[in-house]
Design a protein around this nucleic acid. Structure first.
Length: 663
RNA sequence: GCCGCUUUAGCUCAGUCGGUAGAGCAUCGCAUUCGUAAUGCGAGGGUCACGUGUUCGAGUCACGUAAGCGGCACCA
């Protein structure tokens, strides 16, 4: 007999080979029905997998939502694979995991058929429902490697065969059999049968290409994505959330609110319209005040530098494929012949500001007393990004970083990083992001520098965050092995937006490589020359992307200090036009971005239009207000209005419109 | 860069079997002066992304190019 300890501490003695399902049945019929899987000594397992030795056992039900979702999504992926093979013979299966909101499966379609398209999805969904309703048992089997490889080869499953051959030797190879003869190699666990899934709780959402094992040198597979849940209600809630997310898409709002546009003649670069650039300017002015107060000195460096400079910094070798290069010669002005000769010298648009900041540091002799030196730049950078990577404001080819480089002594590093964390905390909270996570990206396999340097850098960053009290799980503190830059570890700051998505924006990273390459040094207390440590850091990342995130976070309803138009004065009758103009003038004098709407339209029309345009304050004036020197204030998102004197409205809006650091 | 889809008026979209393009909103004009989410009437507006081909004839079919969208890869 073996001893099974349940979560309440009670112990049951059962015969070896008893399954968790049988134990659930022994406890009660309710639990037997609700139990979908088991945790055995903490490990999630099939409910039908026999217990062979003493163990702690917890039965998993739908109430254990994270586990239940993970299982259901993984099962949906298998059902998807089975459905696709049933409908499209000759399709090879490869790999299909659960994702954050569902699942996907990568297929190698029969060559004559080609990749799947969205038109295939309804039929596949229908087949999946059929498989679910058939309630096929999912049975775990352990196979020998030889048998498994032979089976995959026999079925023409070359990807599976290759994978089975390459799995580590000590790993137990398991397959799951669905009903009769369909099987997939999988570590599991799975639900007991396909019928445990809700046929109304999934939806296939899209198709795409994906490389086998994520490597672009490998075959392109055809991936089908789905979203999967425990029940129909959850699915519908998720689909509604997706619609909400689509409504706040910055590309859509950017056009609707006339903030910016993109066009193919400058693809990857942004045309900022007056209203969009107001947001930029407000953000930039705010950040500049914060940086000034935090001891940064702002600089401006060249847009174009000679290729030799980029060679020396290492960018020419490591980063050239992402740089825009420019011939350093007078272009041929004749109609015939090439514009540039074959022996042109090259220059390049800067993809980063760091080398230029080192060049400023190197001017004159620096003493240890000059450190830390914090050089900031609203640096406009160009990167020749792959076309497929471009995405609205989020990924562009010309962007402006809120960049800075801190040159300091080794003994100043922890304090500088900690101060940066504090500054960044203030800025994020001011901008409406109370929730963010801090992560430490550790050394990658391919890297520069000694292990001692990496030990020291990683520990310094760790210590600095610990000094601020933020290296805790509540702060989302996490260490990410292998994610660091090739020259240094980095701290990453991930914002959570209003609908729960995360965005990596801020970063700070140590760098001892570039000061070395560009021979930056200072004279120490001892009279010798020393290398400064360089910290690369950004709070917003890029203005373009950060404004994109702000648009989506606020769904276009910006806090007043960032709103492009802060107030519209709308008339009811043309008799009030002159008064409206006066009110607008007073608002503008008080520094409020106000416009008059004296069009010959009904007030209903104006209210609707300015509400849709997300104007935060609508000041309605008719004959009565003009006579009394008042306005009827209607705030966006609120019902009704309040009648106030012009002076009161101005005082109120002027106070509300102050940037957070000036309140 | 790779896979799939898309591209028609400023915007959102319709356009049948290949026969020379249409709606709503927006714009402009006229009327209307109205109290909190669309006043009425009228007018103008198109190289159907671009190129090549098939055809008597192409928005429609084929091929190519570009951009956009969804992913993959990339983001040192």
């Amino acid at each position: 007999m073996i001893k099974i300890t349940l979560p309440d501490g009670s112990v049951r003695e059962v015969a070896p080979g008893t399954t968790p399902a049988e134990i659930a049945a022994a406890i009660g019929p309710g639990l037997a029905k609700a139990a979908i899987a088991a945790r055995v000594d903490g490990e999630l397992r099939d409910i039908g997998r026999p217990l062979e030795q003493d163990a702690r056992l917890a039965l998993v039900t739908a109430k254990d939502e994270a586990d239940a979702l993970e299982l259901a999504r993984h099962d949906f992926a298998h059902v998807l694979a089975e459905a696709v093979q049933a409908l499209f013979p000759g399709t090879q299966i490869t790999f299909g995991p659960a994702t954050e909101d569902g699942f996907y499966y990568d297929f190698a379609p029969a060559p004559e058929r080609g990749p799947f398209t969205e038109e295939d999805l309804p039929a596949i969904e229908e087949k999946m429902r059929e498989i679910i309703r058939a309630d096929k048992p999912l049975v775990r089997e352990v196979w020998s490697r030889e048998d498994l490889i032979a089976r995959w080869r026999a079925e023409g499953e070359s990807f599976k065969a290759q994978w089975a051959a390459e799995l580590p030797g000590d790993e137990e190879l398991t397959v799951y059999r669905s009903g009769g003869d369909w099987l997939d190699m999988c570590r599991g666990p799975h639900l007991a049968s396909t019928g445990k899934l809700d046929p109304q709780a999934f939806k296939l959402t899209r198709v795409s290409g994906a490389y086998w094992r994520g490597d672009q040198n490998n075959a392109m597979l055809s991936r089908i994505y789905g979203t999967g849940w425990l029940n129909r209600k959850q699915l519908e809630a998720h689909l509604t959330m997706l619609e909400e997310a689509a409504k706040r898409d910055h590309r859509k709002l950017g056009a609707e609110m006339d903030l910016f546009h993109l066009q193919q003649e400058a693809h990857g670069s942004v045309f900022w319209h007056p209203k969009g650039y107001i947001i930029w300017r407000a953000l930039e002015a705010y950040l500049r005040r914060r940086l000034d107060a935090a001891g940064y000195q702002e600089v401006k460096t060249p847009q174009i530098m000679d290729a030799r400079q980029w060679e020396q910094s290492g960018h020419w070798g490591k980063y050239r494929e992402n740089m825009f290069v420019i011939p350093d010669e007078v272009p041929n002005t004749e109609d015939e012949g090439p514009v540039v000769s074959n022996d042109a010298q090259w220059m390049a648009l800067k993809p980063m500001n760091c080398p230029a900041h080192v060049l400023i540091f190197r001017q004159g002799i620096k003493s240890y007393r000059d450190l830390p030196l914090r050089l900031a730049e609203m640096g406009c950078c160009h990167r020749n990004e792959p076309h497929g990577a471009l995405h609205g404001l989020m990924r562009v080819r010309q962007f402006t970083q809120d960049d800075a480089h801190i040159f300091c002594r080794e003994d100043q590093l922890v304090s500088e990083v900690a101060q940066f964390c504090d500054l960044l905390d203030v800025v994020y909270k001011d901008l409406g992001f109370a929730d963010y996570a801090i992560k430490l990206a550790l050394r990658p396999d391919k890297r520069f520098g000694s292990d001692e340097m990496w030990d020291w850098s990683e520990q310094s960053l760790r210590d600095a965050v610990a000094a601020t009290g933020r290296a805790t799980p509540e702060w989302g503190w996490e260490e990410l092995p292998g994610e660091g830059a090739f020259y240094a570890p980095k701290l990453e700051f991930h914002l959570t937006d209003a609908i729960g998505r995360t965005w990596q924006v801020g970063t700070i990273q140590t760098d001892t490589v570039l000061p070395e390459r560009l021979d930056a040094s200072y004279v120490g207390e001892d009279g010798d020359r020393h290398r400064p440590v360089m910290l690369h850091r950004a709070i917003l990342g890029s203005y373009e992307r950060f404004i994109g995130i702000l648009i989506e976070h606020y769904a276009g309803r910006f806090p007043l200090w960032l709103a492009p138009v802060q107030a519209v004065v709308a008339t009811i009758v043309s008799d009030a036009d002159g008064y409206a103009q006066q009110v607008v003038e007073k608002l503008r004098t008080a520094g409020i971005r106000a416009e008059a709407d004296v069009r010959n339209e009904k007030i209903n029309y104006k209210v609707r239009e300015h509400s849709l345009a997300k104007v935060p304050n609508l000041l309605v004036v008719g004959r009565r207000e003009a006579d009394e020197g008042t306005v009827a204030l209607r705030e966006l998102g609120k019902e009704g209005q309040s009648v106030l004197s012009v002076e009161d409205v101005i005082a109120r809006l002027a106070k509300e419109a102050l940037p957070p650091d000036m309140r």
